[in-house]
Design a protein around this nucleic acid. Structure first.
Length: 149
DNA sequence: GCCAACGTTGGC
DNA sequence: GCCAACGTTGGC
């Protein structure tokens, strides 16, 4: 079972939004980057995912969710009213995918970006590399355990 | 296919 | 709010 990390602005969707509806599957949509999309496509039901809070006061990994539905066409791409609308996308050949995710747990204490940067064994994690903007990335089992450890 | 211009991300 | 880094767009 693979492990992942996704970035989010907590003002948009935070770990608390998942925690408030622990039984609900929440769509993870709006990914509009090809590399991130390709990782979304690889997600399988049951995969665990770190929720990373970005562009906010307390930056870092805030909790864990799991994939409840693997990739399907992101409805927002067809919605002309949506900020995620993509006029070049068609139902026949949708460009963008979404997955559904469900709450697993909130970490007792947020793991800050600063701590992640100073942790051994995370050198290959795109998150801590300078200038990296990838919003969906794989996390190896070893990296996952080091982060939780 | 190149690359300059532009837009976005995201830490600080 | 600033700005470095990066991705995308579009003219040529």
């Amino acid at each position: 079972m693979a492990k992942w990390l996704v970035k989010t602005e907590p003002s948009e969707c935070s770990i608390d939004d998942f925690a408030q509806k622990p039984d609900a599957s929440i769509p993870w949509d709006g990914v509009r980057n090809y590399q991130a999309r390709n990782f979304l496509r690889q997600m399988a039901e049951g995969d665990q995912v770190f929720i990373y809070h970005a562009s906010c006061k307390h930056i870092g990994i805030a909790g864990i969710v799991r994939v409840t539905k693997s990739a399907y066409p992101d409805p927002a791409q067809f919605d002309a009213e949506s900020p995620y609308h993509d006029p070049k996308s068609t139902h026949e050949q949708p460009r963008w995918q979404a997955v559904d995710m469900q709450f697993v747990k909130k970490l007792p204490k947020l793991i800050s970006l600063d701590r992640l940067k100073n942790m051994d064994g995370l050198e290959d994690l795109p998150l801590v590399r300078k200038g990296n903007r990838l919003s969906v990335m794989p996390v190896s089992e070893d990296e996952w355990q080091r982060i939780l450890g």
